[in-house]
């Protein structure tokens, strides 16, 4: 696969509340060589993790909706750190807050091609 090794060695933070989706996502990422951090299912867990070891995260994949809570706070911290990230969401674009619409976004269900196409620029 083309994605083989795309993310090799990269530490990718996965924030996703549904285990099954997270599991599948993680599998895809690991398959591309990433070191998956997480998955984490809540905003507070994610922020706590980021506070603990910030430099270790290279890329983040954020589900917008975490048990009804928006993950914008996590996004803010990531952006502040300069960590590139993308949103995954089941919502349409208009459900995303205007301030966060410019960030790359993948719609669920994720296709690997779209996911890696979005992740590609962040690996550089």
């Amino acid at each position: 696969m083309a994605q083989n090794g795309l993310l090799s060695g990269r530490r990718v933070l996965v924030v996703e509340d549904d285990f099954l989706i997270a599991e599948a996502l993680c599998a895809s990422l690991e398959f591309a060589g990433a070191v998956v951090v997480g998955p984490l299912g809540s905003v507070s867990d994610a922020i706590r993790l980021l506070r603990q070891d910030d430099p270790a995260i290279d890329i983040a994949v954020l589900d917008v909706d975490l048990h009804g809570e928006k993950s914008y706070a996590v996004a803010d911290v990531l952006a502040e750190r300069g960590v590139p990230f993308l949103f995954t969401t089941g919502y349409n674009v208009d459900a995303v807050d205007v301030a966060y619409r410019d960030y790359p976004r993948c719609e669920k269900p994720l296709s690997e091609r779209a996911l890696f196409a979005a992740l590609q620029p962040m690996t550089g």
């Binding site: 549904d18 099954l20 989706i21 599948a24 969401t89 089941g90 919502y91 719609e107 669920k108 269900p109 994720l110």
Partner: peptide
């Protein structure tokens, strides 16, 4: 979409 993601 979530459901589809789960199915996926």
């Amino acid at each position: 979409r979530n459901l589809l993601a789960i199915v996926q």
